[in-house]
């Protein structure tokens, strides 16, 4: 970690590796300043990491990053202890939060953090990039809540890009809040919903058997992407309802018969 006049810079790193005994070890688990990583008990062959926010933030001017790399055959699950709250800082300028997830062949990463909450007056740019090898698997959830309860939102821009076998299967940006291009809260984009989320699933078998498009309630859809991946998109009045919709969609996907 380093503290510059512009804000705090921190980058945490995780490397997951097969331990040769049927499990997954974490040869690299590097916390950095406000980004503290804790290994928790995994289930079976999977290694589990919890991201613990040791300080508040990101604040204006901060640059946070997390890199996670699952090597061939490793199984990694990353969660977070609490929501991340973007807050205005003393230094002017936007904050950045970059997540990079790399999934090697036959590896699997579940990236399931708690929501990101954009507090009034904050300005955060989030970038999430996942690079999945052709036989890798990924579940990645991204939830954004615009403002704490009853609060107006800050400025939040996010980009989510997912590559499978070197090919981009998803590239999506969303910009909300004061100063975002017009119409972001209007009938084409969010229409007053205060929570928006996506769940990306990459599974090699989706290449041959893509998911069937379906709707969950009136503000959530499950769709096959152009490649071995599926996307759940949802908007909701608040973070709780958003999570419920995404959970329901994920459960519906897992109930799908594998030979269907």
């Amino acid at each position: 970690m380093s503290t510059t006049p512009g804000g705090v810079r921190a980058r945490a790193r995780i490397v997951a590796r097969q331990d040769g005994r049927g499990g997954t070890s974490l040869p690299v688990l590097e916390s950095d300043g406000p980004l503290a990583l804790r290994r928790t008990r995994g289930s079976g062959t999977e290694a589990r990491v919890v991201l613990v926010g040791a300080m508040s933030g990101p604040l204006g001017g901060d640059r946070f990053g997390v890199d996670a790399h699952a090597e061939e055959g490793a199984l990694l699950r990353v969660q977070s202890a609490a929501a991340t709250i973007a807050l205005p800082g003393q230094s002017k300028g936007e904050a950045h939060y970059d997540v990079r997830v790399h999934v090697a062949d036959r590896a699997e990463v579940s990236w399931l953090p708690e929501p990101l909450i954009s507090a009034r007056g904050s300005d955060l740019r989030v970038r999430t990039e996942a690079d999945v090898a052709a036989t890798g698997r990924l579940v990645l959830r991204e939830e954004q809540v615009l403002g704490r309860a009853g609060e107006e939102t800050g400025r939040l821009s996010s980009r989510l890009a997912v590559r499978v076998g070197g090919r981009v299967v998803l590239d999506q940006e969303l910009a909300c809040g004061p100063g975002a291009p017009g119409g972001w809260d209007g009938p084409a984009v969010l229409a007053g919903h205060r929570a928006v989320g996506q769940l990306v699933l990459v599974r090699p078998e989706f290449q041959e058997r893509p998911v069937t498009p379906r709707r969950i309630g009136d503000a959530c859809a499950v769709v096959p992407l152009a490649g071995p991946a599926a996307l759940v998109s949802a908007v909701a009045a608040d973070g709780l309802r958003l999570r419920r919709a995404l959970d329901e969609a994920l459960a519906a996907l897992d109930r799908r018969p594998m030979n269907g």
Binding site: R159, A188, L190
Partner: peptide, 21 residues
């Protein structure tokens, strides 16, 4: 082409699937 904008409208995407049905 990866450098091109990717701005999205969640309700247009979700609504398109509803409309198709």
């Amino acid at each position: 082409a990866g450098a091109l904008p990717a701005a999205s409208a969640p309700l247009l995407e979700i609504g398109a699937e509803a409309h198709a049905g």
